[in-house]
Write a protein that binds this DNA or RNA. Structure first.
Lengths: 256, 256
DNA sequence: CGACCAATTGAAAAATGTCAATTGCCGTGG
DNA sequence: CCACGGCAATTGACATTTTTCAATTGGTCG
């Protein structure tokens, strides 16, 4: 692995560390050893599967937007989660198990690899790192359940919810302000995440446009009124942010 | 806590241990200390919230059928997971976090409590127990994602899938044979799990009845042809059973 | 220019939801 | 024992949502 200066690492891995630290502070040493594991970022074009060169590699998305998805027998694709910069994803399924899930880019991404065995070692050695990785999993579970609930909503709210979640996560990652928020997401991808057709998404967006909640300029969706969009979607950031409290109450795996 | 003889414990906690051991064998000692934590089972009527007397209690469902659910602003209830005998559930949300999820019984259940701090201690002390609890979480995540994918299917397949999953899990718990399988599940509950209306579930079941995949006798749904129902639903038991392989490849938390 | 992709639009079909009424079953209480 | 009320399931008719197919537009890139 090419070595980086400390400053370089901090810059590249900033979102990553920030993400992990939501489960609790990481010591300087823990941050250092974690970042030393991050390989050289690689550019991946849009609509490509993210496949580690080796199955032992874990991927860290550093920029762009990706997703976890699966395909039904009839060809329908379902997106089950968005993956934003700072997110860590295990190697795609198909190699390691019978699960149908894949991970792929939605737009051009920069992706770095981490050695899985090395990360396992760190997790055993550093309580803070183990805690952080466990939190990541709890967080994914919370979001998966939130999407399940979201699937019970009519399509207008369902689409609005997805936009809200993306905005909230990007904001938490320091990649979006609290006000307007640009999203690099095609309507077809949004449709696969909302489990609806891209035609219908187009119509649903018309409604959001006319309500001045969202706008479309330069082929970028832009949320123009976060509070009212959240209100419409029934999106409560606390439902996702509660991961920390949930973890503390549920810390069955022990962090130290 | 009332003490049980070793034999009594094994009997009551059999499904529990069997469930945990899917992540790997537990030593006799580990089994013993785990079971010593299980309190006296309590009967809970159908349609009741499962609330530990104290928020520090974790619940072990020993018989019956329960579910994790949340309610949308408009009153719609979404069931996000079935909870079968042997399943462990954290204390219901609302106490510990801002998450909207609740746990409640669908039919009469027998539920035992475990002290959360004690379980945490065991998890720190015994690698096998930590591994098992981690597997439980991975398993829940796998199932949540599978339901997300299932939500993309038309209602016939969606309902069929839920029946298949229940059958597979009950079979794995030793509570159902591979052939016919009786399910104590009302059509209204099935509807809330399939994110559809109970009227529509009724019609969908007619189709399954006419295809001789399912039958209804003595107010119990009975799956009469597991293989063909799985085929219709696109249900692959490997997609859930792969939890172990997934865990091994993903063992970031370290098990010893 | 020409090919391609994202987005939009209209019209018709299909799936699903809602409302309302009916049946059958079961346990309760007279 | 029987009448009653409540719950689960069913059914029909109708409204709404969503999908599908097809055609069109506008933009980007080679």
């Amino acid at each position: 692995m090419r070595s980086h200066s400390r400053r370089e690492r901090s810059c590249l891995g900033g979102a990553f560390i920030r993400r992990l630290e939501r489960a609790g502070t990481l010591s300087d040493l823990e941050q250092e050893v974690l970042l030393s594991l991050v390989g050289t970022p690689l550019d991946v074009a849009a609509r490509q599967a993210i496949i580690g060169q080796h199955a032992e590699r874990i991927c860290l998305v550093m920029s762009g937007l990706a997703c976890r998805y699966a395909t039904l027998p009839d060809g329908t694709r379902r997106i089950a989660a968005f993956i934003i910069p700072g997110d860590l994803v295990g190697s795609p399924a198909g190699f390691t198990s019978g699960l149908p899930w894949r991970v792929g880019t939605l737009i051009r991404c920069s992706v770095a690899g981490l050695s899985r065995p090395d990360l396992c070692t760190l997790s055993r050695t550093y309580p803070g790192i183990r805690r952080a990785l466990q939190w990541l999993m709890q967080d994914e579970l919370n979001r998966a359940r939130a999407w399940l609930l979201n699937d019970s909503q009519p399509s207008l709210q369902r689409v609005a919810y997805l936009l809200c979640e993306l905005q909230a996560r990007l904001e938490a990652a320091g990649l979006a302000g609290q006000g307007a928020c640009e999203l690099s997401l095609s309507q077809a991808d949004l449709a696969d995440a909302a489990a609806t057709s891209h035609v219908h998404v187009s119509r649903v967006l018309q409604t959001l446009f006319s309500e001045r909640l969202v706008s479309l300029g330069h082929q970028k969706l832009t949320i123009t009124d976060v509070p009212r969009l959240r209100d419409l979607a029934g999106f409560d950031p606390g439902h996702l942010a509660a991961g920390v409290a949930e973890l503390e109450a549920n810390d069955l795996l022990g962090s130290g």
